[in-house]
Design a protein around this nucleic acid. Structure first.
Lengths: 236, 236
DNA sequence: ACCTGAACACCGTTCAAGT
DNA sequence: ACCTGAACACCGTTCAAGT
């Protein structure tokens, strides 16, 4: 008891320490098991003590999100726009992968945090400096959607939240049971079709990174083509 | 009291009635305010009575999702694959728009419900019948992600859940305040750039339908191009 | 056998009492 | 003035008691 009080005193409560602990807790056990009460317990503190440093749980989540967004690389100057955007988005993706709870947290909030706005602003700046019209850049940002932040709603995403332990466990989806394959033959067919690593991969183990980059490049290439054609929304 | 008992007896509790009431409640008040307890109250029933018809809340949500997915149009035969997919996805979109809570509900569950699998299977069937290789179809399904179900994580999506009243209110994002515009000049620029309806639209009021179709067509056109080039993932 | 009220183990947050 | 325990109004679900 005296021990704990001593420890708490050595590293007193602060917004910084609350945020770091909250993120560590969400990383380890999933956002679903992050509560004000067990966060306080983890910090060796009474729940109400947290409210000195954060207004409420929503504000805590916003601050956690901002901290993750802060991990995204700053833009590399003097890079061709398509490569610059590509690199930036892949950096965002790896930041979000370090914190598997973040994507869902961003989605369920209304997400106009300053850090996110700053990041988006810099992405638009890159597009504009690459010669895209403001009009096209607008639609491009919509088309990218959450992908610009490094995530997209994959169907059957096993890595999202789900409580489980850290991201390293990487729970592969179980191979499709025969009766399911029989009911959904076309899904069964394409599940085994993609030659990701080698032909021995059967159904399970999609290469998420490959799929993300495939979709990203599909969009970026399409955008580049539109730009070169001088596309404007007046086409409508 | 006797009145209520009489009413409850006239339309006795059933899985069907529970689901319809739950969906109506989520439509009206948001998924956040759907609880087993107030669903029971809405039905004039004690909370525990629900558990005769649904195993638990998770199973209830799955069943609600399946009912929404059931609203998606069945595929039109003898249609060129790109148009068939396009029409199907836009139908999925309008189904999800009728139930604004559904997209977030689908995302936060692991979403391998039978209805969703059946829908996805039929989409793959259309791709295959259009001549896409199983390999390409696989990556296409990944690239489409949740868009194939008619939604995508838009940045600043105001229509998602948020509790509010029905979808008809359509809360437009407030125009960007001057101090925000000053901090994020590139966002401010593109916010006013898109000539959606006419030049008088300033910052607010993006045409969601236009943006959705813009991104969808960007992907579909890119996919068609890959198919015509005989693309395979062996390119890696 | 069926139904259901009370209870359990949570939650975020308020508020008044204690120092 | 500061801190915090108890309390409030919830939640999903268990379980035993009542019919």
């Amino acid at each position: 008891m005296a021990e704990q009080a001593g420890t708490a005193r050595r590293t007193p409560l602060s917004r910084e320490r609350i945020l770091r602990t909250a993120i560590a807790l969400a990383d380890a056990a999933g956002i679903g098991s992050l509560s004000m009460r067990n966060l306080a317990q983890e910090l060796g503190v009474v729940p109400m003590a947290l409210y000195k440093h954060v207004a409420n749980k929503d504000e805590l989540l916003d601050a956690m999100i901002d901290m993750v967004v802060g991990e995204i690389d700053t833009p590399m100057p003097d890079t061709e726009w398509k490569q610059a955007i590509r690199g930036r988005i892949l950096s965002a993706r790896s930041a979000l992968q370090r914190h598997p709870w973040a994507a869902l947290a961003i989605e369920s909030r209304n997400m106009a945090t300053p850090a996110i706005l700053g990041y988006l602003d810099s992405v638009v700046a890159t597009l504009r400096s690459g010669g895209l019209s403001a009009d096209l850049a607008h639609h491009v940002m919509h088309a990218m959607g959450s992908r610009v932040l490094g995530f997209s709603q994959e169907l059957f995403d096993t890595t999202r939240d789900a409580g489980r332990s850290g991201p390293s466990t990487a729970p592969q989806p179980a191979a499709m049971p025969p009766e399911v394959a029989a009911r959904f033959p076309h899904l069964a067919e394409i599940a085994t079709a993609a030659s990701h690593d080698d032909a021995s991969v059967v159904g399970s183990g999609c290469d998420d990174q490959f799929e993300f980059e495939f979709a990203l490049d599909l969009l970026l290439d399409g955008i580049e083509r539109l730009q070169q054609q001088g596309w404007t929304s007046a086409h409508r």
